[in-house]
Design a binder for these strands. Structure first.
Length: 292
DNA sequence: TGAATTTGACCTCA
DNA sequence: TGAGGTCAAATTCA
């Protein structure tokens, strides 16, 4: 147990060191106008985000391991049904709190004309439907989807799809939480700055005040991610304070290793995968990762 | 037969 | 207390 914990720490430190290298590389480019380009910055930014996402996921997994009770066996004292129930309820409440702190953003998507189902275009991720509700005052029901890899990777991303009342060919899609899995994401084709700007202008994106306390322009800046231009992200709070709650983690060491591999492949493929729910990252010019 | 969807029940919060 | 969100058993699908 102690040994595997140290191994986890070692892997985590390696990931953070990798992030530090990306910061230094970015800094080097910033001071060298010959190599400085928006594409380079975007790529390094994407690498950094991926690195941090990996580190966060690893910490979450380690935290899960630390909190998890030892595996049950014949020698274990059986937990009473009532305490088990209260444990589940407590776990559920924690999950509810964590979900609330996840970043949320919405967009409108035109129905896929031509297809019989007229469902919105696939966004590149793999989703599983887990519920449907009739919404008061709405003509059409709201469908609830979560990431297919929620259990296997603890990915907390969810989305809600609801057909627009005014225009039935439009779907309102609300996303919550960034994908921490590395599955099913289609690499976007490389775009020039002009293309990105044009796409941002031409796309129908609607980000509304999703709850009464959200409209705080000073404290809740809007973030946009060039590689996912259809999304205009509004941050609600610090996602670092939230954590996923993987329900069935077995063999955490190998899983963490998988995450690192996935992250590395993501990094090398220039795919922006994760957005962070922090309001601001400010790297001091003297910033560095110090270990030990 | 495993994965995905459906749907009624349950929980949280305003 | 009711609306919205999620769970989980039942059902369907490939």
């Amino acid at each position: 147990m102690e040994k595997s914990h140290n191994e986890d720490l070692k892997m985590l430190i390696d990931v953070l060191r990798q992030g530090n290298a990306h910061v230094m590389e970015l800094e080097a480019h910033l001071y060298n106008y010959e190599t400085l380009s928006s594409e380079t910055c975007l790529l390094l930014s994407s690498k950094l985000q991926s690195t941090f996402a990996t580190a966060i996921t690893m910490i979450k997994l380690m935290e899960q391991r630390g909190l998890r009770s030892p595996p049950s066996s014949a020698t274990d004292s059986p937990r009473s049904q009532s305490s088990e129930r209260s444990f589940k309820e407590q776990e559920r409440r924690e999950m509810c709190k964590k979900r609330k702190s996840l970043p949320r953003w919405s967009e409108q998507v035109k129905a896929c004309s031509g297809s019989a189902m007229e469902i919105p275009l696939d966004d590149g991720h793999s989703w599983r439907k887990y519920g449907q509700k009739d919404i008061l005052g709405a003509k059409f029901p709201r469908c609830y989807y979560r990431c297919t890899y929620r259990h296997s990777h603890g990915c907390v991303a969810t989305k809600q799809i609801q057909r627009s009342d005014n225009n039935s060919s439009l779907f309102d899609i609300t996303y919550r939480g960034a994908h921490t899995c590395n599955h099913g994401f289609q690499k976007p084709s490389p775009l020039t700055n002009e293309q990105i700007i044009h796409q941002n202008q031409s796309l129908m994106v609607k980000t509304e005040a999703l709850s009464s306390n959200e409209h705080k322009p000073e404290s809740s800046p809007y973030f946009s991610f060039p590689l996912t231009p259809k999304s205009c992200l509004k941050l609600e709070s610090n996602v670092f304070s939230s954590s996923s709650n993987p329900e069935n983690y077995e063999g955490l060491d190998s899983e963490i290793a998988d995450i690192i591999c996935a992250s590395n492949s993501t990094t090398s493929s220039e795919t922006l995968k994760i957005d962070f729910g922090v309001e601001q990252f400010v790297f001091d010019s003297e910033f560095s990762f110090d270990f030990y």
